[in-house]
C-alpha cells in the first residue's frame, strides 16, 4: 500500500467506522425501546421510505441542488466583487463593511417571506435566499484576504511600477485566494441551509416540490421516516457542494499553499 493510500485510509476509515457504529446503535435503540416510528424511525425505516419515494425525492434533490448552486454561484461572484470594492475603497469600507457584518446577523428565516414578495414563488426566491446567507462569508473573507497582503510584496509591486489593476490581478487576488476559498467553503455549507429555508417559505408545492416542501408535507402527514430521508438528501447536496469547492480549492492551491500541501 502506498503512503498516500495509507494516509487516505487513515483519514477516511475512522469516521466511516463511526457512522456505521452510530447507525447500528440507532437501529438497535429503536428496536429495543419500541419507540413509535412517527417519533423516531429506525435507519431501516428511513431507507425504505427513500426507496419507496425515490423518484419525487431525487427530483426534489435536483431542484434544491439547482437553487443551491445558483445561490452559491451568485454569492461567489457578487461576494468577491463587493469584497474587492470594499477592500480597495477606504471610505466605503469604513462606512459599509461594519454594516455588512451586522446585516449577517439578520436571520434568513425572517427575511425569506419578503423574498417571496420580490421574487415570487419558486426558484428565484429560493436561490436568492441561498445567496443571502452565503454571500457574507465570501465578502468578509475577500476583504480580509485582500487587505492582509504582505506589505513587502506591495512595496515590490510599487517598485516595479505596477498599475492598480496589475496589482489586483497579479498580487492581491492570488494572495487572497486561500482566504477566499475558505470563505467559499463556508458559503457552500450555508447556501444549502439558505435554500431549504427559502423553500419552506416560497417553494412550489405539488409535482415539482423541492426538499423543503417535501419535508413540510411529510411533517403534516406524520411521515417522519420520509422527513429523515429528505433531510439526508439535502445533506448530500451540502456535502457534494462542499466537496466540490474543497476539491477545486485544493487544485488551485496545491502547488504553493501550506493548507494544501501533503501533511504526514
Amino acid at each position: 500500500m502506498s503512503a498516500s493510500t495509507r494516509t487516505l485510509w487513515r483519514s477516511v476509515l475512522p469516521p466511516a467506522v463511526t457512522v456505521v457504529v452510530a447507525v447500528a446503535l440507532w437501529q438497535l435503540a429503536v428496536m429495543l425501546t419500541g419507540v413509535a416510528p412517527y417519533l423516531c424511525p429506525s435507519p431501516l425505516d428511513v431507507f425504505q421510505a427513500f426507496v419507496e419515494r425515490r423518484e419525487p425525492l431525487l427530483a426534489a434533490t435536483g431542484l434544491t441542488a439547482a437553487a443551491t448552486l445558483i445561490g452559491f454561484g451568485s454569492a461567489t461572484v457578487l461576494g468577491i466583487t463587493i469584497g474587492t470594492v470594499l477592500a480597495s475603497v477606504g471610505i466605503l469600507r469604513r462606512g459599509v463593511y461594519p454594516l455588512t457584518n451586522l446585516l449577517q446577523m439578520v436571520p434568513v428565516v425572517a427575511v425569506a417571506p419578503l423574498l417571496t414578495i420580490w421574487f415570487g414563488y419558486g426558484l428565484s426566491a429560493v436561490a436568492a435566499s441561498a445567496c443571502i446567507v452565503a454571500i457574507f462569508p465570501v465578502i468578509a473573507n475577500t476583504v480580509d484576504g485582500l487587505r492582509s497582503v504582505d506589505p513587502n510584496l506591495r512595496e515590490l509591486f510599487a517598485l516595479y511600477g505596477a498599475s492598480r489593476s496589475e496589482r489586483w490581478l497579479k498580487l492581491e487576488l492570488p494572495a487572497a485566494t486561500p482566504t477566499i476559498i475558505t470563505g467559499l467553503r463556508i458559503a457552500a455549507g450555508l447556501s444549502v441551509i439558505g435554500a431549504v429555508v427559502g423553500e419552506f417559505v416560497s417553494g412550489f408545492a405539488g409535482a415539482n416540490a423541492p426538499i423543503g416542501i417535501v419535508i413540510l408535507t411529510a411533517i403534516r402527514e406524520a411521515r417522519t421516516d420520509l422527513v429523515f430521508a429528505a433531510i439526508l438528501c439535502s445533506a448530500v447536496v451540502g456535502f457534494t457542494l462542499f466537496g466540490l469547492v474543497s476539491g477545486v480549492g485544493h487544485l488551485v492551491l496545491r502547488r504553493w499553499h501550506a493548507s494544501s500541501r501533503a501533511t504526514p
Binding site: L153, K170, P174, R255, W256
Partner: peptide
Amino acid sequence: GFQDARLLPW
C-alpha cells in the same frame, strides 16, 4: 534586494 526574498509563493 531585501532582507527577505519577497517571492510570490504562487
